[in-house]
Every structure is written in C-alpha cells, then in structure tokens.
Simulated assay, not measured.
Amino acid sequence: MTALTFGSPGRYIQGDGVVGDIGQYIRACSPRALILCDSFVREQFGSRIVASCAAHDVTAHWLEFSGELTQRKVAELAQAAQSFDFGVVVAIGGGKTLDAGKALVDAAGCALITVPTIASNDSPTSKNYVLYDDDHQLAAVKHLPRSAAYVVVDTALIAQAPTHFLLAGIGDAISKYFEAEQCLQSGGKNMFAARPSFSAYVLARECFSIIRSDAAPVLDDLKLGRTHPAFDRLIEAVILMSGLGFESGGLSIAHSMTRGLSRLAGAAHAPHGLQVAYALLVQLHLEHRAPDFMRDMIRLYERLGLPTRLSDLGASGATREHYETVARLTLEAPYAGNFEHSLSIADIVSAMEKVERAAA
C-alpha cells in the first residue's frame, strides 16, 4: 500500500493581538527578515511589527506587493529582494500576498512566516501557491517543499475585516469534508501526491461541523460590530482545520470546478470560496445525495449567504454550451479523478442543471 503523508506548518499561533509578538517568531527563523505586504497593512500595523522586531533584535526590510501574482510579478519581486540580506520572508495580508511570499521563498529557499489579515481562504497553512496570467486567469499551481515555519493569526485583525471575506473563507472550507471523503473513498492522492491521511479527513469533517453550528451566529454578530464567543473556533476551522484537511486529505470535484468557473463570464470575478461553495452543490448531486440532505444544505447556504445558483456568482444567462465548457475544464483539473466513479462532461452538466432547478 502507498505510504500516506500528513503535512502541516511548523507552528500555528492564533489569538487576539498575537501580531505584536511577531518578532520572537521571526527571530526563531532568522535575525534578518523580508516583510512583504501592501501599503495599507504597513500603515496600519507596521509600527507594532517594527517594535516587536526591535525587541528581538531582528533587522527587517520591507517590500510592497499588491495586485495579481503573475510570473512577471514574481520575477520583479525576486529582483527587488536581491538587494536585501534575509533568511525569512514574512508575508502579511490576504491570500495573494501570502502567495507572493511563497513565490519569493520558492526562489530564495528560505523560511516562511504567514500572517493573514483576512480569513478568506486557508492558504496560510498550505505549501501551495497560485500564479495567474496577464488576463487574470489561473495559470499554474506551484508547491513549496514545505509549509510555513509559523502561521500567525491575529483574531483582532481578522475581526476588523469586512464580513464578505470571512464568508468566502467559509465557502472555501465548507467543501473540504466532502472532498476529503471522496479522495479517501476513491483511493485518490492528496496534495503531497500520497495516500490521504485519515487524520486530515477527521479535521475536515469537524471543520464542516463547526461551520454548521457556529458560522451563522458569528456572521450575524460581526455585521453588528460584535464578536460572537464562537468566533475564535470558527477562524481555527476556516484556516487551520480546512487547510490541513485539504492538503493532507485531498481535493475532488468542488475545487476542480474552479478551473471552469474562473473562465465563465461573471463567475470569473467571484471570490474563490464562493466558486467552491457553488461547486460543492454540483459535487453533492454527482454523489446522488438524498433530497432531504440537499434541502438541508440549501437552507444552510441561504442562512449564511452562500451562492445556490450561477447567477449568485454573477453568471446570469449561462447556456448549456457554457456548462459544457465548465465541465470540460473541471475534468482537466488534476484532482478531478479523486471521485468514487469516473465522470463525463454530460454528468457534470446534468448536475449543474439540477443545482439550477433546485434553486429556482
């Protein structure tokens, strides 16, 4: 039997105000750090980071990043970083900034620390990063040799972000249980090209359980400017449980469909997590889930504000030809084969039509 692989960051730290302790984590990796972020992050949190670095005798160089991460942008960042002497990259911001930090680490071969300022996805814990082409289409998924040495999640920063970021993170995380289950049952491979870990499957399952119980009240309170007692647990589920669940448990149709949805006019501009949430409904129909189960999922989606039809992603008026394009690109994704039986374009089109009818 093929050996299983379970991967994770070196250490995960979550709490209110932990970004103020960043200096000690940087120092554990190197006394010389390259800090990558956008101008807003530096303006808002830079003084706290500088003070913490000074307290731990860390020399920090700052490099600004914003926009799309293309191969050209990676080359520009690597060129700019050459003038600095650093042993660790500290990437602070949203998913694209964290991916930019991973790309720099891939080129430099040094340590990585990720500091998410929003919970829109689970990339902080993952070794993967995504490159786009000049037309803003997904070009490649790259892999670091290892995940971040430290993941530092300051829940005070996450709570300040607009709630639509967390909703996207919930959409990204809600599929991981079902995708890991398909990967495990089908004998598929996880993101390490190895046998999926049952421990990762359990984490993904519990991630879904927490979303079901805690996501709605947390979102309700955040919209009122309050933090629900379950907020900390939900953030751990969306970032840590989801991240470990997908990377060591594996992906399936829901994430494969983002390859197709990102080429569909309107839907292409929807957040990744909302694309995944819609695609999960398609996967569940492909699994022939019972009508009562599907109705329960739709109620959960409607309670949270997740998309239940293509028009919710901005893709109004999609035709069968559009469905077929999405299906073809879905089946070209590397983890589309992690499913309990082989699928055709017609199968996926039929499932998409069922999703649209159920939401009508």
Rank of each mutant, 00 (worst) to 15 (best):
D133T: 02
S248P: 04
A270P: 04
A51Y: 05
I174Y: 02
G10E: 15
S248C: 07
H164V: 11
K142Q: 13
G101S: 13
E76D: 14
G7W: 03
P31C: 07
R32G: 03
D99Y: 14
A148H: 05
G46Y: 00
L331C: 05
I348A: 08
E332A: 15
A204Q: 13
S120I: 03
F86P: 00
D21P: 05
L251E: 00
D57W: 02
A103P: 10
G273Q: 09
L310A: 01
G249M: 07
L343E: 11
D106H: 14
I113G: 06
G314T: 06
D347E: 07
Y278E: 05
G187E: 06
M294G: 03
G169L: 11
Q185N: 13
L224R: 15
L222V: 00
V152G: 08
I345M: 10
R299M: 13
G95R: 08
F339Y: 08
T70F: 04
I26D: 12
I118F: 10
D134T: 10
K354H: 11
E324W: 12
S256R: 04
E181A: 06
H56N: 08
V19L: 15
V88M: 12
G46A: 04
D232R: 15
E340L: 14
C110V: 15
Y12C: 04
T325K: 15
I210M: 04
H255F: 13
E206V: 11
M294W: 04
I118T: 14
Y25K: 03
S147P: 09
G10P: 12
K96D: 08
N338Y: 01
F86V: 01
L131P: 10
V152A: 09
P307W: 08
L138Q: 10
F165C: 07
A216T: 01
E247P: 09
R303L: 12
N128S: 11
F198W: 14
L281K: 08
A194S: 15
I348K: 04
K176Q: 07
A103N: 11
A60N: 02
D347I: 05
L284F: 10
A173P: 06
F45T: 05
A200D: 02
K127W: 12
E181N: 02
G245M: 01
D57Y: 06
S242Y: 02
L310I: 02
